[in-house]
Amino acid sequence: MIWQLDLILLLFVLICAIGALTVKDLLGAVIILGAYSFFMCILWTEMGAVDVAFTEAAVGAGIGTVLFIAAVSKTKRRSKD
């Protein structure tokens, strides 16, 4: 457990979370959310939760993003806030 790496990852996670919520292009926001999930998944691997990380990689960064993109592509891409 390297705490510097840990801290950087946490920072990334935070940045991604805030980014996903502030970006006005929904497709971009969704991609950032995928990145968020990905960092989260690294964080968990680092904490020893490999199964959870695996699942998050497959779900959060994978299927979740795909579903979001599918929905956004069926609806509007722009968000007002």
Binding site: A53, F54, T55, G62, I63
Partner: peptide, 17 residues
């Protein structure tokens, strides 16, 4: 090893997607 029905299922699904 890490993994199991859920992760595998998601990957299978992803392949079809």
């Amino acid at each position: 090893s890490p993994g199991g029905g859920f992760q595998g299922g998601v990957i299978l699904g992803a392949s079809i997607i």
